[in-house]
Amino acid sequence: MQFLSGISLGQFIPGESLLHRLDPRCKITATFILLSGLFMASKIPDFAFWGIFLLSLSAMSGIPLGIILRSARPVLFLVAFTAALNAFWTPGREVFRAGFLSVTIEGLVMAFEMGMRLVFLVMFASMLMMTTSPMAFSDGLERLLSPLAKVGFPASEMAVMMTIALRFIPTLFEETDRILKAQISRGADFESGGLLKRARSFIPVLIPLFILVFQRAENLAVAMESRCYVPGMPRTRLNPLVWTKNDTGAILGLLAFISAVILFDRFALKSFIIL
């Protein structure tokens, strides 16, 4: 039995590919453009383009497709839930009936589109996190938010907080796994009984987890303080962000591709009436 196995949740995978080397500001902006595009064009045929795009991202980053696909796993439940909701509650031509529930063709199409949209959204966002180190990511975010710093927004503190939060995700999973195992070794049973009993059985996991995580966060805070970190003080960088031609090229290329997909969605598909 292995608990919490194979977590990829968009953790950074060190590498030297073209995608890894792009400026984090470029990657963050590109992800936003990509996600907006995804929302504007998500009919069934559109997903062929998004699929091809995902494949090329995988090739460019050197990250195997399987890992990218797996990154969507945590939201599969949500996907199934929204898909089911859509399938059952969209009025239209009925194909199947079970009691008071009716499944329509329109519902199925809608369910597919909503589900796929969510899955691609998570995979594109994971691509950003898998190719950008937390440090670079928070640097990029800080610079993008820096106009807000002029009106008193703590962009720099937020960036450091972000780095720390991201850095703590693996720790959180490791500790949860260890405490779960330790309590199971002491006979804890998380699998039987009613909902209330099961919820209560997690208390011996949650309390030690909170204590431990707070303790470790405090240790880290002390360690950072001893390394001269003072919140709000200006910091310099080992690798200052440099915007290159590649970054401009990547954004322009992406915009062109997205425009093409949206045009296809709006005009080509109009004459191509499905069902």
């Binding site: 405490i179 195992k181 330790a182 006979g187 011996p204 030690p208 431990l212």
Partner: peptide, 24 residues
């Protein structure tokens, strides 16, 4: 486990020690 005291959750040592046998 290593550092087993990190799995404490109860308010008294008695409750902590009783956890395993009562689970069984």
């Amino acid at each position: 486990f290593q550092y087993p005291e990190q799995q404490f959750f109860a308010e008294t040592a008695r409750e902590e020690i009783a956890f395993a046998p009562s689970n069984w």
